[in-house]
Design a protein around this nucleic acid. Structure first.
Lengths: 211, 211
DNA sequence: GTCTATATGTTGATAGAC
DNA sequence: GTCTATCAACATATAGAC
């Protein structure tokens, strides 16, 4: 499947091909749409890009998703479902809070770095918040609250365990950590992938007891 | 000057009017362009929006900035110049590292929150990185390095003074802090302005000695 | 479910008059 | 320096044939 061109620059999305091959058209559109949303923003990709990559026509996409808003909602809902299922599975593992936090971070942020410098959907939605329809805004807010709770819980658990040391409320430290990771994905585009590792490392350093 | 409409929603940019009134056309375009870039992203605003707000025609903007790329570069260069002058002035003040860090943060991030939930230019450039021309990418990278150094220095100074306590290198902690603040501006759109205050507060808590 | 064809609006951009 | 007029390219979207 061919490269796509955005802002006069050509991008290979070959890393998606293996997964795409296993999906039906509707799922393909969501999966690819999610990648494009995270890489180029909601205003940065079009039905034409999806059509080219999938080797179908514009109209076929409109059959599955009459408007771009429908697709946008489907993308966020799909991401949320995936995250929820993944969280449930991860929470069943018999591991420490520290290990679980690292799993959360690697699974939600580290992966994005490896694949084409994506930004997480919550950050992408924040960036484009004023350019997306209100229905999408609500879905994004709700996804955001889910993620915030996820990190609040693990920080609370870890502090009660004496694994983590930090001042302030767990839900506030959770925001601090989430924001740092989101910001690192943005900056990884300007300054390279290392900044993600630095940010992640610093998150854990800041959770350690100080001498 | 009238509202502008983006994604079927109407936004008042009245808060810019006082400042705009003091500028000539070329400066007006840059100043308004900067605001639009930070609020709607590079793909999210057009010459039409600028023309409407300023009460001039599309072609007048092209006279000053033949291509959107020219405007984009001017916006980032202007922001950089403003930041550099502001930093020089701020650094002359006889204040502690803690106070200076707070001045940096309020001046660079707090202000954006009050005005229309803007995102800082570095974050906006990160988000749109793959949709902006290479010339703009370079300007954005350079601005990013300037900001990173700015925060590295103050953290280094503060730790040597025994005002700040943190693990790891100052330049790494600087990234962590910058990312947290940038991320908070994104999330402030989804979840309200309070998250900025929370993030800022948590930054200072994490710099305190732990009992 | 996918196609061709087409409608309608917007975008960045230019030519030439004033 | 700003205007009118106009452009080609692209966007989202629909009608109707296969």
């Amino acid at each position: 499947m061919s490269n796509i061109v955005i802002a006069s620059q050509s991008y290979s999305l070959d890393y998606l091909d293996n997964k795409l091959a296993t999906l039906d058209t509707r799922e393909k559109i969501i999966y690819l749409g999610e990648a494009l949303f995270q890489q180029f923003g909601y205003n940065g990709f079009s039905y034409k890009h999806i059509a080219q990559k999938l080797g179908i026509k514009n109209a076929a996409i409109h059959y599955h998703f009459p408007s771009k808003e429908d697709l946008g909602i489907a993308i966020i809902e799909h991401a949320r479902g995936k995250l929820q299922r993944w969280k449930t599975k991860t929470d069943e593992l018999p591991i420490s809070a520290t290990e679980k936090l690292e799993k959360y971070i690697d699974g939600m942020y580290g992966w994005q770095i490896d694949k084409g410098n994506r930004v997480c959907l919550m950050a992408a939605s924040g960036t484009d918040f004023f350019s997306i329809p209100p229905t999408m805004q609500e879905k994004a807010q709700s996804l955001g609250y889910f993620i915030r709770n996820m990190y609040s819980e693990i920080l609370k658990e870890g502090r009660e365990n004496n694994e983590f040391y930090f001042e302030g409320e767990p839900k506030h430290q959770a925001l601090n950590i989430l924001f740092a990771l989101q910001g690192s994905l943005l900056s990884a585009r300007l300054h390279g992938k290392e900044v993600y590792q630095i940010a992640k490392n610093q998150v854990f350093l800041n959770l350690k007891a100080k001498k």
